[in-house]
Write a protein that binds this DNA or RNA. Sequence first.
DNA 1: CCATTTGTTCTATATATTATATAACAAACA
DNA 2: TGTTTGTTATATAATATATAGAACAAATGG
Lengths: 142, 142
Amino acid sequence: MLLSIEPDGPVPIYQQIRDRIVEAIARGRQPAGSALPPIRQLAVDLGVNFHTVNKGYDLLRQEGLLRLGRKSGAVVRRDASSGPPDPGWAQDWTSRLQTLLAEAAAQGMPATGIAGECQAALADFAFPAAVAEVRNRGGGSP
Amino acid sequence: MLLSIEPDGPVPIYQQIRDRIVEAIARGRQPAGSALPPIRQLAVDLGVNFHTVNKGYDLLRQEGLLRLGRKSGAVVRRDASSGPPDPGWAQDWTSRLQTLLAEAAAQGMPATGIAGECQAALADFAFPAAVAEVRNRGGGSP
DNA sequence: CCATTTGTTCTATATATTATATAACAAACA
DNA sequence: TGTTTGTTATATAATATATAGAACAAATGG
């Protein structure tokens, strides 16, 4: 089972598809270059219309995460190792992060608890190994 | 200006109202017990229908953040100092956090950057002062 | 070249959500 | 008693979501 969906939940199906794929990319289960199921096949697997899957894929393309080709299908375009994010995107994301963390604070979750949940989530993601960590520390390779 | 709204944005107006109030509570600008503007007045201030404001207030009531009374109006029911969150809510919130942080990781934001943004957001919130920080450290007050 | 695979586009329909508008109702308070 | 406030009801229009069927078009491979 590559994806699972809640058809009767409050969040739209195409959005759930988008969310699950974003998480798969972050966790390294779908690295840059890896292929996703064809629209029609995933639609059959999930028991939804193929237009709904198409909408989710198209959303991911707009976000720069997917590359869609006629015969090549859907391929992951970038992941955590593909360079820094777009500044415009970062601004919007920070705004959404503030709202989400504010909700936790208002609901009474302590600062340590919120920070801990963030760290726990990050621990599940596949970040690139640190590289070129030290430069100009007396002279390059021997 | 207590609230500002983007009428033509992608996020519904009633949701924006809810988000801004949640942030005001988290930042301590609307502590538990403080009053919010009456529905009709806020509607006039924002240039929207009062049903839209009512929907935002009602959402906050469902989330346990507001208490609505006939003549008493809308009063903040809880904030960061009002005790721990509901376990059911925490589970849902954690799920939404994972999706949001996964998006940042997939977009190439480094783990340190994500953690830093979380800390920066938390720094703007009003958490209760630590209390009873040390117990059983050899004997209470002298 | 041909046929298949795959995304893309188009039209249509049904339902739900969002926002506005107007009116009336009901409780709390001075 | 009257005013302030939230609440409920009905109606309408615009937009979003999901499904359905059909056809188109590019890329790939035999």
